[in-house]
Design a protein around this nucleic acid. Structure first.
Lengths: 208, 208
DNA sequence: GTCTATATACGGATAGAC
DNA sequence: GTCTATCCGTATATAGAC
């Protein structure tokens, strides 16, 4: 929401932004035509150019607005006051399910595709997304450590490792078109939770 | 190397293929212009069109040829007859370093970017890549299981988990422009190896 | 088979009426 | 502020000479 000299807001701003968003997310930056965007926004091309000085400015706005929209609501995912056992798997399930949401995937694909055309945009995106994924996990782990439910350790590292294992297979495959089904998601979440508690839990059973 | 009716091979075929490869990998499908490709290949546009019926055929050829070139030499990475301890971390280091190679990253980015424009191409790519990454890990694990160095378990699952944790953080970040340095790679590889042996090893020390 | 030159369409961006 | 109509460069693809 920082005022951008290249962007003038007006009546149909949201409408335009949504249209642009839809087309960019579908076709990428180079693949998107402003004619298509105008059609999708139900606005004339000239109107587009009253809002944005050119296509690249339009793209930047779409990226930051989409990221803000997608990543903000997740922030209110507070750590829950429950034992690590079953809840952790549920939580990881939620995170993975969220990350596999079509909207989330499209934005991620776009960010990757345009990474070296718009490095600044994408850097910002990466930070926001990272925060949305590993921070909840880390907060939860920290709470459990504080409560003495699990052993003390470097939660920054372990939360990143958990996130990596949780998303490391599913996201690349989903980005390439093979989205895992619910059962597969659940199994992955369980594996992660199991492995985490096995390594960092207090009462681990090595024969399990 | 399957004969494609849309492709006629000739004297400058390789030259053309390399030029197209360079431009597509740099600019994506929609972003690449055939003028640029012709320039990069030091060939006229007309010559391009004697080899490929159109741009999309050119793209498909680039994808499959690049994948074949990048993924084939890795196949001869045989499991080594060593104890899991130090060697596993080294091996994982190799895998991660390879996956972070600029050429490998560019192809991966392209595959993701064009996933829904060329689903067939990308499906093939995904399988080849998967095989290159988790198969060596799995083969190594299987060997150790057979030797009795580590406990018996579902190596298919564990190798995928190891691969996920190994690549899950580094690859997305690298795709978005933030390639980790050697130390970071080494640390990640070590974490993975440590965690794997801790969970599946025979002589684990839980206080470590 | 390979080139130069060109057809044809589509792209981003703008002029000017309202 | 929003539209219709248009400019003009660039894009893909081809014709035809050699």
């Amino acid at each position: 929401m920082t005022p951008d000299p290249d962007i003038t807001r007006g009546r149909k701003f949201e409408q335009v932004r949504r249209g642009a968003s839809a087309i960019f997310l579908r076709d990428g930056f180079a693949g998107a035509s402003v004619d298509d965007i105008a059609r999708a926004a139900q606005v004339s091309k000239a109107t587009l150019y009253t809002y944005f000085t050119d296509k690249s400015v339009m793209f930047r706005e779409v990226m930051s607005a989409s990221a803000a929209e997608l990543f903000d609501p997740r922030m209110n995912l507070e750590p829950v006051d429950l034992p690590p056992d079953g809840h952790f798997a549920d939580m990881l399930d939620d995170v993975l399910t969220w990350a596999l949401d079509p909207e989330c995937l499209r934005l991620h694909r776009l960010a990757i595709a345009e990474a070296h055309r718009f490095p600044d945009c994408v850097g910002n995106y990466l930070r926001l997304r990272e925060a949305c994924i590993v921070q909840p996990i880390r907060a939860q782990i920290d709470l459990w450590i504080k409560q003495g439910s699990i052993r003390e350790h470097d939660s920054d590292r372990s939360s990143r490792n958990v996130a990596a294992m949780l998303l490391g297979n599913a996201i690349p495959q989903a980005l390439l078109g093979q989205v895992p089904d619910e059962d597969r998601i659940r199994a992955t979440a369980r594996d992660c939770a199991w492995l985490f508690t096995l390594v960092h839990g207090i009462h681990q059973d090595m024969t399990a």
